[in-house]
Design a protein around this nucleic acid. Sequence first.
DNA 1: AAGTGGTCTAGACCACAGC
DNA 2: CTGTGGTCTAGACCACTTC
Lengths: 238, 238
Amino acid sequence: MKNKYLVIFEELEAAIYSGKYPANTTLPSENELAEQFETSRETIRKSLNILAQKGYIQKMKGKGSLVLDLQKLQFPISGLVSFKELAEKMGHTSTTFVESFSKQKASPRLAKEMQLNPDDLIWKILRVREINKEKIILDKDYIVEKYVPDLTVDICKNSIFDYIEHHLNLKISFARKEFTVEQPTEEDYQLLDMEGFQAIVVVKNYIYFDNATLFQYTESRHRPDKFRFVDFARRSEL
Amino acid sequence: MKNKYLVIFEELEAAIYSGKYPANTTLPSENELAEQFETSRETIRKSLNILAQKGYIQKMKGKGSLVLDLQKLQFPISGLVSFKELAEKMGHTSTTFVESFSKQKASPRLAKEMQLNPDDLIWKILRVREINKEKIILDKDYIVEKYVPDLTVDICKNSIFDYIEHHLNLKISFARKEFTVEQPTEEDYQLLDMEGFQAIVVVKNYIYFDNATLFQYTESRHRPDKFRFVDFARRSEL
DNA sequence: AAGTGGTCTAGACCACAGC
DNA sequence: CTGTGGTCTAGACCACTTC
């Protein structure tokens, strides 16, 4: 935590949460903040841009940086967030069941979808997520073995993301997500508490490392009544 | 279009599309680009950051800016994109039917959801979107009348966004989107070609101006088989 | 006219990759 | 060691808002 602009961003974020800068007031001007934090204006601007991008403030030319109402806007569950992080944020009791766990050669279909060499091995993991005693999510993970060689069932019971980021020290950089709604398969009916629902929300996730290599493909299948995705989007100017 | 960093972004974007910078090669270094475009490195960095945010490149410390494969990643339909823009991008023939169009006092429920004064008037617009001869999307728009006073049926047949941005010259700034899957209502069955589907994808959209005032609430109801949402997300580092 | 945020500059030092 | 991108600075000018 040494980057000045990140430190300042976090201080301002905390200050907004604490009520030091209430909603519908403006932050001190960029020049004032630069003085307060003993830094240059460009650095302050970097911090403010993160606040804006995350939906804390709205900058207005000639006026100032308006603090937005977090209550009103609620909180985006967007970005790359793992099941575990999410469940904890919501304060739910959750359990993960590892239904199957194996290492195998990629099927031709998968090899194509993940752009693998034909002899690359992949981990194939099937997990069921239970929230409040209901089996609601089916996660199918396909992870390139050569990048994440020492996977175990125990790791899968917790967070694979956590293991990759903190134990292997690999940086997850970006992901492409795709949302669709499909007919449930036999597998869905068998493994989840479908309660008569005849649709399933499928989130396909292609996850990339820092160096732009695809290392994981995840298909998350959610019971439709329990699925909710919130996004905070800024209008791109182009 | 006078901002240097935007001009440079667009040139680089075009160059990537044209094949001048093929996938899996690196762009010229920031110093080289600064020379080429006769500008400072910080300005170049602004342009490159937009490219990265949009998924064109991946920056790697010590190495360079890698051009990503657009074919592989496909294109995100994310952000705030109107139905019309979207249909045109996909190359589909599309029609919009304005089912109803009225100005009225906001219902208590809506007034609360949109944080309005009890005597504010709103436009209420019901539109059905037809793509390839199938009625697939039901759009319910609620627009605060005092911000957009002169709405007409003709405008609704085209793009309301377009009207607001280019004719009223108001700046749309950000939106909060929420995706859920629900049971279709009677209205859905009546107005859309539901073909036996028993679920509907509901996208709730709260749209804000530049000055952080909420001016429009839109509920877009999609037939589940025709719904697809793609997102390109960078891992936030916090 | 004074204050605000938006852009741009020319330089500096750092951490990291690769030879 | 050199070259890369990442951070930071101190200043400048501009467009916009407010008085």
